[in-house]
Amino acid sequence: MTWDQMQELMWPATWETLQMVGVSTVCTVVLGLPLGVLLVLTAKGGALQNQPVNKVLGAVVNLARSLPFIILMIALFSFTRWLVGSSLGWQAATVPLTVGAIPFFARLVETNVREVDRGLVEAVQAMGGNTWTLVRKTLVPEALPGIVASVTTTVIALIGYSAMAGTVGGGGLGDLAYRYGYLRFETAFMWVIVAEIAIIVTVIQLAGDYAVRRLANRGRGGGRTRLLRPRADTDLVAS
């Protein structure tokens, strides 16, 4: 295969993978974040302490996490068809990807939120804040660096899953690597795809790490970097 032939196949597949992962990530965060917060709130000592609900949520999350992704995907075929009208294509693949990633992400968020200092929770309670204030103004903002790191981890896991989803009709880079690399012995092409995925993963990890650092460094030894940035202007406007 020539480089031109490879490129012709690669770019549409890359775009499919990015769409698949992008849409699944958004859906996972939208649904998984509340679930993760709920796992903390309903736990013992939480603001919405409710042992039965906590136990059920925990059990569902554990069950979903213990299902191998390939089986989850096949089990969800009819649900996917009902939801998006087809079980083929990258759009269809987002359904099992999201369903598979939600419990994973929710557990990560649970850990992030649980690490928020209990004193802050008490401070908000002592001010007369309700549970919604607590979540919106304290738990999520304070856990944000951790949550962003969890999103990064989830995106990378989704890229891995998306390759698997590709082989059963999802399309994307995984499908390409499987069809050409494995079925047609185009080993060189397979390695090119692997390298491309590696680059995507690296870029996402670096971007995620940078965002976490920026968030976590708010007011912590950020003196030097702050001097390099033209912050004086914004301060003047603000005051």
Binding site: D117, L120, E122, A123, A126, G128, E142, R218, R220
Partner: peptide
């Protein structure tokens, strides 16, 4: 809301 409270470890939001 009409009772202020100050804590040993300040409990300020770092964000």
């Amino acid at each position: 809301r009409r009772i202020g409270m100050v804590f040993q470890h300040f409990n300020l939001l770092s964000s």
